[in-house]
Design a protein around this nucleic acid. Structure first.
Length: 416
DNA sequence: TCTGGGGTCCTAGGACCC
DNA sequence: TCTGGGGTCCTAGGACCC
């Protein structure tokens, strides 16, 4: 039996949510009506564009480009800093409203979700009409607009929602593929990115239709399994389930940061690793997991990147353990080239519901654990900066680096 | 174009085992 | 002895997503 899937996408999410918040708090100006953007650190004119308004489009402002470049294209661009707690609240409100219509919701990212509407058709009738009802309710009750795509699978629904923006409902059922999807440039296809597009062009493939009708064996030859995947996508074939997102699905936790200055000595590098390990450790403990693997990665001033990873002898969630191994890994990997980016990540989780007591130094282990808990507690209760290791004082390196705390839902996958 | 930060998955090569 | 092949695990690197 054929399914009915919705993909719901918030238009210019961060910017819309910011604009709505400001209107609700008495500001007269609607950011959506002027060239504006949400981006990092406008004061220092540093960071990147995270979201832009429609009036910013004619200036060719691109999501992901540096603020410097954006100001050059549009000197009077209004830039506001991001506020992730607000976006999380807005996202939750959206999901709550959609829950009135179906319990089968998959949050794909903070501003996108899939809804399996198949069983709801009996209850609500025509899906397109229902989608319009949902769209209008969101606009009226929450103050921002969405684009809704409807089809028989997640891939087509996602592409459909992109066809018309803002504030729109669009279908892309299999019989509509040749007219609505095949004329699109191939880079609009999910999973065709910066590296794959040139390879496809080399084969003479320009549109999604070209790809759909291309010889699969030839494609396999140059793109392996990726070739098979995108060929199926180009033909609209995809059958993954709308899965309720569960926190348990999380696979890794990491933080990384571009340093304001190039690091050229081990001491500063270690301090940076400590700062990152603190955040990773906090998030790991919050997740209730222990990690079996830790990895360190960096980018040099020339943007060459490399990484190194290792397993813990015993799965852990201690900041001090993560930091110790991170330093080991770093010292083995680094040849002294100046660095501008450093990252720490933990993975391979197991449950922490029994306490790991090992025979040799259970007392120090317990002490570490207590220390972590007390610090987490204080940081949660007050400002995270209340606890600061002495080594950071006057170092120019923040005692805690990286974002994404407590309520993150870890589901951004390159697979639908 | 002078390039953030959070993730997931795939592949290739080497080590090691039988 | 200088020579198999298959399976699994580990690691590094790259591609993609939002």
């Amino acid at each position: 039996m054929s399914r009915i899937i919705f993909h719901i996408d918030v238009n210019s999410a961060y910017l819309s949510w910011e604009a709505v918040y400001r209107l609700q708090h008495g500001e007269a100006l609607d950011l959506r009506t002027i060239p504006s953007a949400v981006g990092g650190d406008p004061v220092k004119r540093h960071g990147i564009i995270l979201a832009k308004s429609l009036p910013a489009k004619p200036y060719k402002i691109q999501t992901g480009e540096s603020l410097m470049a954006a100001f050059q294209k549009c000197p009077h661009l209004t830039v506001v800093p991001p506020r992730y707690e607000l976006y999380l609240k807005s996202s939750n409100a959206l999901i709550e409203l959609i829950s009135d219509y179906s319990a089968h919701i998959q949050r794909y990212s903070i501003d996108e979700c899939f809804v399996d509407f198949t069983d709801m058709v009996m209850l609500y009738g025509d899906p397109v009409e229902t989608a319009h009802v949902i769209r209008k309710r969101i606009k009226k009750e929450l103050g921002f607009t969405v684009s809704i795509g409807i089809s028989s699978n997640k891939l087509l629904a996602k592409i459909a929602s992109d066809l018309k923006k803002p504030d729109a409902v669009t279908t892309l059922f299999p019989e509509e593929i040749p007219t609505k999807m095949w004329p699109l440039p191939v880079e609009e296809l999910f999973m065709v990115g910066r590296a794959t597009a040139p390879k496809l062009h080399f084969l003479g493939i320009e549109t999604i239709g070209d790809l759909a009708n291309y010889d699969l064996e030839v494609l396999k030859g140059s793109l392996k399994s990726q070739g098979v995947l995108i060929w199926n996508y180009a033909n609209g074939r995809e059958d993954s389930q709308v899965k309720k997102s569960n926190r348990l699905a999380i696979k890794s936790i990491g933080n990384s940061s571009t340093i304001p200055f190039d690091i050229d000595n081990r001491k500063e590098a270690h301090l940076m690793l400590l700062s990152l390990s603190e955040m990773v450790g906090m998030r790991l403990r919050d997740s209730q997991y222990l990690a079996r693997l830790v990895s360190v990665s960096f980018k040099t001033h020339l943007f060459n990147s490399s990484g190194h990873q290792r397993k813990f002898e015993i799965p852990t969630d201690h900041t001090s353990e993560i930091y110790r191994v991170a330093c080991e890994l770093f010292d083995e990997l680094w040849d002294g080239t100046p660095l501008r980016h450093l990252g720490v990540r933990v993975a391979e989780f197991c449950e922490n519901d029994f306490i790991q007591l090992h025979l040799f130094d259970s007392s120090t282990d317990e002490r570490k654990q207590r220390l972590d808990r007390v610090i987490d507690e204080l940081r949660g209760r007050f400002d995270p900066k209340v606890i600061m290791r002495g080594a950071f004082v006057g170092s120019g390196i923040k005692p805690l680096t990286g974002g994404v705390g407590e309520d993150d839902f870890p589901l951004m996958s390159s697979i639908l």
